[in-house]
Structure formats: C-alpha cells, structure tokens
Simulated assay, not measured.
Amino acid sequence: MLTQDFSGLWVPLVTPFDGDVVDHGALRRLVRRLGQEGATGFVACGSTGEAASLDKAEQRAVLDTVLQAAGPLPVVMGVSGYHLPQMLAWMRELGDCPLHGWLVPPPHYIRPSQAGLVAWFTAIADEAQAPIVVYDIPYRTGVTLSLDTLRELAAHPRIQAIKDCGGDARKTEALLADGRLQVLAGEDAQIFGTLAAGGVGAIAASAHLATQRFARLTALLREGRLAEARALWRALAPLVDAVFAEPNPALIKAQLALQGEMANTLRLPMTAASAEGARRVAAAMTAL
C-alpha cells in the first residue's frame, strides 16, 4: 500500500450553491484560487462542505469538479455514516477516483465502545483504496477515540494520519511522540500549538481566507522558525476567532460572498451568518 504524505495546509472546501443546486463554476474557481495562493491540498465533502446535505450524486459531482480543478494538488474525500455496508459500497463506487486519502470519522449517533471503533476503522481500512485520515471530532460524533485505540489503529498500514479535533493536548502530544500517525491540526485555533509541537500540518477552514498567510504560517512552523510564525499567528488569530463565532461554514461563505466568489447560500439546517458576525469577519480581513 502506497504511503502518502499529508503534511502542509489542507483546505476543507465549502460547497457553493446557486439557489438549490451546486455551483460548480464557483467551486472550480475557488479551488484554483486556493491552489495558486499556497494550499497543499483539498478535502472535498467534509463537514465544512455541508456534505450531510448533499445526496450521493451531488457528492460525486463535487468530487469530480475538485479533482479536475486541483490539477496536480492532492484531494482527500470525506466519507461518514453509521451503516458499514453502505459506507464500503460508497467507497468502492468512488474507487476509480485518484484520491490521496479518505477522511473518516467515527460513526455518529451510535456511540460505540472502543472495541467497536477499532473494528469499524479496521473494516474500512481493510477495503480502502487509499490511506485513511482518522477524523477525531467528539463534539460531532458523540464518541472519543482513546489514545490506546488510536495507537492500535496506527498499526494498520492504511491508517496513516489523524485530523485532531479531540481537544486533549496530552493525547495530541502522545500521538506526536509515538510518531506513527501524521498529526494534522483539525481545530484552527490549535494550528500554532500543534505544529510547533511537531504536527505535520492542518486541515483549516479559515484558510479559505488569507490563504497565503496560512500557507506561510504552516511553512514557518514546519521549518521551526517560531518567532516569525508567532508574529504571523497573532495577526491571524482574530480572523480564526471571528470565523468560528457562528456555526461553520456560515461566516466563511458570508466573506467569500462579500469577495464576489459565490452566493451566500447554505442548505438547511445550516443558515446564513448574522450581519454582525459577517461584519466582524470582514473587519478581521481588513485588519490583515
């Protein structure tokens, strides 16, 4: 099994809409702009992309557009669910796509045991055509992947990285010390701390905005140039705080709409950002 590198700045893409349909033109332009401004790669159909509100045909069409627009840059596909045969069938259906990896969270709603989580990820990894990035995000799934579970999963040759949204600094540090999983900051507010401690990169929704600065921050941290990175991070932190003041991706879409890149449209149950929230993000961008 080919070992992939997941280091660098990954952007979990929003899904632009034109009315009630996906705006593939806006998505294509967004991917190209982000690539030109320093994104290492892209995540299609993650939570930032409102994937739960897209049917399978829409998800496949989004993935095809992202792959086409990304050119040589790598693409990871988000897949989630709690029905294992359906998950595996969907991954097989996408097996013809040149994916760099799969972003896979625990099954939501069910709250399985740690043994169940090991069995779940193992079954998926056994059949995966590309490496797995484990998405540890307890506040969305209702279940926490323990350190022992992650260490057990790290032994699988197709499980190669973790998007770390677990909120447990000791677990993050232990994974970094273990060294078998590439650790990616999954919470934008933890980019500096995770990379300074040895993480390989970030999957950062905020990097739709000020992309060049986030790419520069990632590079500086990976080079160990902490003083320069610290100054840049302090400038970016107000933008990160502003972007996540309301449910993601409402505020990112509001700013992208202000910049003329897409309509400010989300699908229920997601709703548009408040005017005050949008003003705060715009002000943070102006301050940069």
Score class of each variant (00 low, 15 high):
residue 218 T to F: 00
residue 102 W to M: 02
residue 81 G to L: 01
residue 150 L to Y: 04
residue 153 L to Q: 11
residue 20 D to Q: 14
residue 80 S to G: 12
residue 267 R to N: 09
residue 58 E to D: 11
residue 93 E to W: 04
residue 144 T to K: 15
residue 63 L to P: 11
residue 193 G to Y: 01
residue 156 H to S: 13
residue 51 A to L: 00
residue 64 D to W: 00
residue 27 L to N: 07
residue 228 E to G: 03
residue 15 T to N: 01
residue 4 Q to I: 04
residue 134 V to M: 06
residue 74 P to K: 09
residue 96 D to P: 05
residue 269 P to I: 08
residue 162 I to P: 03
residue 87 M to L: 13
residue 54 L to Q: 02
residue 5 D to V: 09
residue 178 D to F: 12
residue 230 R to N: 07
residue 265 T to E: 15
residue 203 I to T: 11
residue 80 S to C: 02
residue 18 D to W: 01
residue 89 A to E: 07
residue 180 R to M: 08
residue 65 T to M: 03
residue 87 M to A: 10
residue 43 V to P: 05
residue 12 P to E: 03
residue 248 N to L: 02
residue 224 G to R: 04
residue 67 L to H: 07
residue 158 R to Q: 11
residue 111 R to Q: 14
residue 207 A to E: 11
residue 114 Q to P: 13
residue 284 A to V: 10
residue 164 D to H: 14
residue 214 F to G: 04
residue 205 A to F: 12
residue 192 F to T: 01
residue 184 L to A: 13
residue 202 A to G: 00
residue 250 A to M: 03
residue 163 K to R: 06
residue 55 D to N: 05
residue 57 A to N: 06
residue 167 G to N: 07
residue 220 L to D: 08
residue 108 H to I: 01
residue 165 C to S: 15
residue 175 L to N: 12
residue 123 A to F: 14
residue 225 R to P: 06
residue 35 G to S: 09
residue 238 P to T: 02
residue 237 A to W: 12
residue 167 G to F: 08
residue 173 E to S: 14
residue 250 A to E: 06
residue 86 Q to N: 06
residue 240 V to M: 03
residue 285 M to I: 15
residue 102 W to P: 07
residue 36 Q to E: 15
residue 180 R to W: 07
residue 200 V to S: 13
residue 45 C to K: 00
residue 58 E to P: 02
residue 159 I to E: 13
residue 3 T to M: 08
residue 284 A to F: 14
residue 37 E to M: 02
residue 78 G to K: 00
residue 148 D to K: 05
residue 57 A to S: 14
residue 140 R to D: 01
residue 206 S to F: 05
residue 159 I to N: 13
residue 201 G to K: 12
residue 205 A to T: 15
residue 260 G to R: 09
residue 270 M to V: 02
residue 180 R to E: 07
